[in-house]
Amino acid sequence: MLATGCNTADDILNAAHRSEVKGRSLWRDAMGRFARNRAAVISLFVLGLILIFAFFGQFLSSHDPAFVDFMLRGNIKELGGPSIENGHYFGLEKEGRDLYQRTVQGIRVSIMIGVIGSLVSVVVGTLYGAIAGYFGGRVDSIMMRIVDILMAIPFMFVIILLLVIFGRSVFMLFVGIGLISWLNMARIARGQTLTIKNKEFVEAAIASGVKPFTIIVRHIVPNLAGVVIVYATLLIPELIIIESFISFLGLGIQEPMTSLGALINDGASQLNRGTPWMIAFPLFFFLATLYAFFFVGDGLRDALDPKDR
């Protein structure tokens, strides 16, 4: 008992000594908190595996994603199941193409849409929110009123309208998703900016005659990083869901490209033909990706978001 007591006292002394030598930065603190969150660390690991699979998985199979296997196509129910021997690890999809290759491609497309949409929201939303928050007053109320108005528009319908009118392409999908993704980010960034702009270092910058725009880019935006990273991570799965939803309706990604939503739709349409693998594999990777992103985002929020401290 006594020994442990001594140990702890020693530890505290040691820690105090060490902390004198080098201070712990905000980011180190956050990393430590993240590392202690078991679900988040495991999810990060899973996410890494999925990413490696999505970008390098196609080299593991000799089949072409667009190649239709006519030898097996006539009887997919009996012959098209997952098998190691003929190299169709996940079996065939409904047109007789290799589901493994299609799934790898689908994961890649879905994740890319999520990540790029989220990056758009980071750039546009952060700047927009920081500008609105920094200038305040009338500028702020006009800019945020615009966000309010845009948020009230039923965007699922507008995205589909866009896709139908300008043709279904990945680019239009990006435009549609980019249009909505920055709105929440702008609100969050504005809220944070309102508290940051009253800090001393901003005052010091103003006093030393730094231009407003430079203050926003050099002093405010870097301090938004924590919150922005959290919400950008949580936005990715949401955007993946939106994209998959539109592709599920058959209005998103077009053949021969595919995404997880389109694959799940294909699988779902074949449900009563006795080919469950067609929905099982895409669904598995879809859910794994979503949950991994959600848990990593949650872990980051616990680690970085100053509200919960």
């Binding site: 869901i241 599920f248 929905i279």
Partner: peptide, 10 residues
């Protein structure tokens, strides 16, 4: 909560 309804329906 994170199960989208297009997964739920099938």
């Amino acid at each position: 909560q994170s199960l989208p309804n297009f997964v739920m329906a099938p």
